[in-house]
Simulated assay, not measured.
Amino acid sequence: MSPSGNRRTRWAAGSAVALALLFAGAATVASARGDAEAPAPRTPSARSADAGFARDMAVHHQQAVEMSFIVRDGTEDEDVRRLAYDIANTQANQRGMLLGWLDLWELPKTAPDGQGPMAWMPGGGHSGHDMAGTEGMDHDGALMPGMATRTELDRLRAARGEQAEILFLQLMTDHHKGGVAMARGCAEQCTVSVEKRLAQGMVEAQRSELDLMADMLTARGSAPRT
């Protein structure tokens, strides 16, 4: 089997596991609700770390998917396109799980009044990341740690060839670093066990991709921005 075939097989297996976890969680909630003798299941509140992580990481993942599709059109390099394909598929699947949990918990997909992005993390999750400006000011679209700004996304759309590859790898490196910090925060603070396991899996997978992207940047005579 070719390397790309192996990669697609691993992604398909991972997706099956992720969906199984989601369906298992749904079945557990449905069973608890339907059993009059069982105590009512504990569901997270709208201001909990569980809900905050699900909302914020869904937004964070959406941008990673967007950047992956952008670079697909900006380069013919198979290694970069394959990485972008893996990121887009994995994070789109995880995003569906996160939004599905919010539906199961009957919680809104937007933050409660007075609670902005990252409020569920100590310090708002800003430590170690440049979030230009202060709360209430324009961050040029970068709402959370590691997110690219609108200006950076416009640069990526305009780039071609190796320039697009390098910029994508640098932006996605920043994005993964922010994502790892967020996922680690959930692994430490979230109370729903299946969500904690997903978060820990994100930490491990994105750390591995960070190593891969560093090697890909080195091969192109470049390096991560930070």
Rank of each mutant, 00 (worst) to 15 (best):
G141D: 04
T90F: 02
M1W: 14
D174K: 13
W101F: 07
V192K: 15
A142P: 04
T226K: 10
R197Q: 11
V59S: 10
A36I: 15
D211K: 15
C186D: 06
A13K: 10
P44K: 00
A18I: 08
A13S: 09
E152S: 06
A199Y: 00
V65C: 03
Q91R: 10
T226H: 13
A54Q: 02
G133Q: 06
S2A: 13
G146S: 01
A18H: 07
G34P: 02
E78A: 12
V71P: 08
A199N: 02
A18K: 08
T226Y: 08
R55M: 06
A142D: 07
A16T: 03
A38E: 09
S208H: 14
Q91K: 11
G201T: 05
L217P: 00
H176S: 00
D154T: 15
G178H: 02
G5D: 14
A26N: 05
G116C: 15
P108A: 04
L98M: 07
R81D: 11
P145G: 01
R225S: 10
G141S: 06
T218F: 02
D211W: 11
D73I: 06
R47V: 12
A58V: 02
Q91Y: 11
G123F: 04
W120K: 09
D174P: 10
G128F: 00
M131W: 01
V203L: 03
E152F: 02
D35E: 04
A132E: 15
L102E: 01
R82M: 15
G123N: 07
Q189V: 05
D215S: 00
D113A: 05
Q163M: 02
E152H: 03
P145C: 01
V71E: 06
I87V: 12
T149H: 06
G221T: 09
A12Y: 10
A223G: 05
T173Y: 13
M202F: 03
L210T: 13
A159V: 07
P224D: 08
V203Q: 05
R33D: 11
L167C: 14
R7Y: 14
